[in-house]
Amino acid sequence: MYGLGILNGFLVTMKNFIKKPVTIQYPEERNPQHPRFRGEEFVWYEDRCTACASCAKYCPLGIIKIVTHPSGGKLPEGDAYAIDVFDIDIGRCMFCGLCVEACPYDALFMGSGFEESKYKRADLVIHADRLRAAEKHPSTWFRPQLEGRGYDPQSDAPVPWKEAGRESWPHHLPQRPGEPGADGADAPSSPAGH
């Protein structure tokens, strides 16, 4: 019948009127955040970093600045270079995570926070000192060794540098996770639904 379509619409809005609203009142309540979330505060382990500057090269915007000097250490130990400057300008960062993907020694991680607002643009540059001092709550993005043990950056304790790397992963293999030859148990590879 004519007019029924309009009445149906009224029913739908009334149904939603009675239902609980879906709004989340942000500062008080929060959306559950996934451990893979690519957040703002980068996590950097100086002990793992060899100052190879792969992250700086892979950054599409070139916002990572690294200055090093030869430290007299040995190359195989990875301490041949000492870091003078390690700046990430998160004012221009787009959080694509390519730098984390590029890091061969698992020294750089995405952070888990997202509430980094500042009054000045200059304050948005994260310096090495701040990165050293910060609590290490790394995101599990592109870090299956963290994800594999169910690490949640929101609730779990900070990760020390010795546990953050791939070598601490029980199935530490030359292959990357998921590649042929990798142990079936290591990669999170359950087929959905069965």
Binding site: Q33, H34, P35, R36, F37, R38, M94, F95, C96, G97, L98, E101, M110, S139, W141, F142, P144, E147, P177, G178, A187, P188, S189, S190, A192
Partner: peptide
């Protein structure tokens, strides 16, 4: 966000696949 850590600008896919497998809870 579960799949790739971002909501809008996802950058999920890579040449030759995707960057990482979907997590269990996905």
């Amino acid at each position: 966000e579960m799949l790739c850590g971002a909501r809008i600008t996802v950058s999920y896919m890579r040449v030759g696949g995707v960057f990482q497998d979907a997590p269990e809870e996905f």
